[in-house]
Design a protein around this nucleic acid. Structure first.
Lengths: 125, 125
DNA sequence: TAACTGTTATGCATATAATATAACAGTATA
DNA sequence: TATACTGTTATATTATATGCATAACAGTTA
């Protein structure tokens, strides 16, 4: 596990950790059923509180990426391609929402936004 | 001025207010040189603290949207709306390119992206 | 049993957000 | 000039989110 976190980032530490671990799962650096670093182990490695690691792991479990068993550890959920896809769809959704906000505030019409989509998605066809 | 704010939103009240006022400026509901509601007036109307309104106005002034004069009030800065619009269009373009990259990696079809776009842009019609 | 796992509870520190209250300062006008 | 509007500033309080430290507890495995 190679996780880099930044204390000065506006993104909370536990969010940075969940993101890094998701990425490791996507890239198969963390394989199916593989055990994640222990909460205390990773906390020591990153020199932060284990409670912050726990919070990150709780979030990952909530979202179905890992499964935690008391006394044993946390393990990557058998890979669910649909789950990964959903994650990416949510990411895209976030960006579309940002676009919507910008368009709303700047009084840019849906037609104009649609036009930008069309140009970018078809430019290398 | 017709501003709707939500106390349960994760977006801070003062941000909701700056956004609403920017929108009013872009849509020309608030015209150049026009006076904004007084901090106390708007605070009473929205039933929140005038300090929250002040914070929003300070932010708007920082970004150049309005100009505040003690004793007189806050006024919409004369500006080049077309220039601002162009900036916002570029911002949107950047996000669309990010979306394209994600969709490519996650094997998400253009149709699916179009569907997300449709849902988000039409959800409150 | 020992040495790992994770869990829970408490308290502390800090930052942001939002509020209430009060006093102060500039502007316009009756 | 008095007053009623504008905005400004200072202080204190409350709530929430984030992150940490410590300690005790509980399950698993060798």
């Amino acid at each position: 596990m190679n996780i880099i976190i930044s204390n000065s980032s506006s993104i909370p530490l536990y969010e940075q950790i969940t993101q890094a671990i998701k990425q490791a799962i996507f890239s198969n650096e963390l394989k199916e059923e593989e055990m994640l670093p222990s909460v205390r182990g990773l906390a020591n490695e990153l020199k932060i509180s284990f409670l912050t690691i726990k919070k990150a792991y709780d979030e990952l479990e909530e979202e179905g990426f890992i499964k935690t068993v008391q006394g044993k550890g946390s393990f990557v959920t058998p890979k669910n391609l649909e789950l990964l896809r959903e994650e990416k769809l949510k990411e895209i959704q976030g960006y579309v929402e940002k676009i919507k906000d910008i368009a709303l505030v700047a009084d840019i019409s849906n037609e104009d936004v649609k036009e930008i989509f069309k140009i970018i998605f078809e430019e290398d066809k």
